[in-house]
Nucleic acid binder design. Structure first.
Lengths: 110, 110
DNA sequence: TCTTATATATATCAAATATCGTTTTTGACA
DNA sequence: TGTCAAAAACGATATTTGATATATATAAGA
């Protein structure tokens, strides 16, 4: 059985994907990124969308920035964020398909 | 503007999904769960599939067990694991669509 | 210009959690 | 009893999180 496409290649990919998963594995960051899927948003708007206290949100946005997932632009008083990572966008898309806002509780687990 | 479908409902869903993301946000766990998508596997087989040292893998499997993502069954010397959470399966499916083993590096981020 | 208000960012601290390597146990057999 | 396979127990270090306080940038007034 020829280990599919080399173990270490899989491991590298897994690490990459795992990092991205970790970035999104916090409710505030997840909600923020979901909101950004709809388009550019100010911090204030994200605050409203996530319900997170401002310093918390700011810190999480800083993290997403560092990780290259979002980019910021300042316009006078406000700072506007937007998604800047296609991988993250694809992941969110996929998650929405799988768990979309309307997902019925199928209880099909076994 | 009627906050879409109640903020707190979104927050609850986000927390749920974020927990799942966190469970899978580690290379070893991610690889193990991916392997289990193909069917039941012994710890030994998972060890080979993930390349992780036995105690590490065991620890991660224990965590997935606690979180209800996998179930174990002992057959004589070996222990066989299988996926037991449809949500996790759906998520992996989604990830595979988004990042499938053959994903080209599209570099479409901007 | 000096002040004040608003929006956002950064800093700090303690508690909780995660991760990793190593060692020790346990369970099921031969 | 000896031996595998797998789990659990340790111990060290690092990261995350939430709360709270403080700082910066820009704009608007007096």
């Amino acid at each position: 059985m020829p280990r599919p496409a080399s173990l270490s290649a899989l491991q590298r990919r897994a690490e990459e994907v795992a990092l991205l998963l970790k970035s999104l594995s916090h409710p505030v960051r997840l909600l923020a990124v979901c909101e950004l899927m709809k388009g550019e948003r100010s911090v204030g708007a994200l605050e409203a969308a996530t319900g997170a206290p401002q310093p918390t949100l700011s810190r999480d946005l800083a993290r997403l920035r560092r990780e290259g997932i979002v980019k910021a632009r300042r316009q006078s008083k406000s700072v506007y964020y937007r998604l800047s990572d296609a991988r993250a966008a694809r992941m969110i898309d996929a998650l929405c398909v799988a768990f979309g806002p309307e997902t019925r509780k199928k209880r099909s687990a076994r």
